[in-house]
């Protein structure tokens, strides 16, 4: 047993987990507001990362300008997706809703590969120091920065939902669309808002991860990791999504540790969250904290 190695894996897991949680939160935001299951969440990350990379490396903008440009682009894109693709499908069965986002994800993946190529690319270094000593553990600065960005975004979310009028409108819509509409909330606007915010935060997460790991199509895997996270945390709980994401991150790294130390199976860590997911669904068909639908005839 190498305890310091284990600790390193756990810390890494926590940091990656916060990012998973952030993405899962974006997913839950869309689901809560508009009941759309977004299988293209990972592609929103990927889009943000590629656009920012393109602006920095191919156009030559300074990083902060590229960052702001990407955020603006993501907001417009999120609203466009909602208005053009999802608005015509309101009231369609669940299968259509799921498949349309799956279709979007395939489309974006291919288009991005077409434009930016399949090779992974890395950002020019933005931060000076590479590693920092944290309580005896070597941790990459970029990881810490990404963690900080994620925490700021989470705090921003909490403020937005609890303090602002728009946030209140979104919560009201999530609670009951008809009641919210009758009280003067523009449900269309809320749907568009949800997509805009979700795309914006996803793009931020994408850029942050791109800074650490480089940008490649593999980033979209974050969108798939959302599912174990929300199954753990409940589909309609924002806090639950964050907690679920952190658990998945730690779990993945623990699996990697166990695999590397004892089992030597190789790539167990990519599959481990799915085993957990299936196990949970066997016991609790609506996820750990999901609300059970009560249906009447």
């Amino acid at each position: 047993m190498q305890l310091d190695l284990l600790a390193l894996f756990v810390v890494n897991g926590l940091i990656v987990g916060v990012l998973y949680g952030l993405v899962a939160m974006c997913f839950v935001l869309i689901y809560k507001a508009s009941r759309v299951v977004n299988f293209a969440q990972g592609e929103l990350l990927l889009l943000g990362a590629w656009v920012c990379w393109g602006a920095v490396v191919q156009v030559g903008l300074p990083f902060w300008a590229a960052f702001l440009l990407t955020l603006a682009f993501s907001v417009v894109l999120g609203i466009l997706i909602q208005v053009v693709v999802l608005r015509p499908l309101i009231g369609e069965p669940l299968i259509s809703m799921i498949m349309v986002t799956v279709g979007l994800s395939v489309f974006f993946q291919a288009i991005l590969k077409w434009i930016f190529g399949v090779a992974p690319q890395s950002f020019p270094p933005v931060l000076d120091a590479q590693k920092v000593n944290l309580a005896g553990l070597e941790v990459e600065v970029a990881y810490l920065a990404s963690c900080a960005v994620a925490l700021v975004a989470l705090a921003g979310f909490a403020l937005f939902f609890n303090r602002s009028k728009l946030g209140l409108a979104m919560r009201a819509t999530a609670f009951n669309q008809q009641v919210a509409a009758s009280l003067g909330v523009s449900v269309r606007q809320v749907f568009a808002m949800a997509w805009a915010i979700s795309a914006l935060v996803s793009a931020m997460a994408g850029i942050v991860i791109g800074l650490v790991n480089g940008v490649s199509a593999g980033l979209a895997a974050f969108g798939i990791k959302v599912f174990p996270a929300v199954i753990l945390g409940g589909l309609d709980s924002i806090v639950g999504a964050v907690v679920g994401g952190i658990i998945v991150g730690v779990l993945e790294n623990l699996a990697e540790y166990v695999d590397g130390q004892f089992l030597h199976w190789g790539n167990l860590y990519t599959i481990a969250p799915f085993y957990v997911l299936v196990a949970i669904l066997m016991v609790k068909p609506y996820g750990l904290f999901g609300t059970k639908d009560i249906e009447r005839l």
Binding site: G103, V106, A110, K113
Partner: peptide, 26 residues
Amino acid sequence: QIVNGLAFAKEAAVGLAIVLFLIFEP
């Protein structure tokens, strides 16, 4: 770009076909 991107265009067409059919010919 078009000639080399054919494989990606095929993949993108799958996604686009799903989206367009769901919207216009469900």
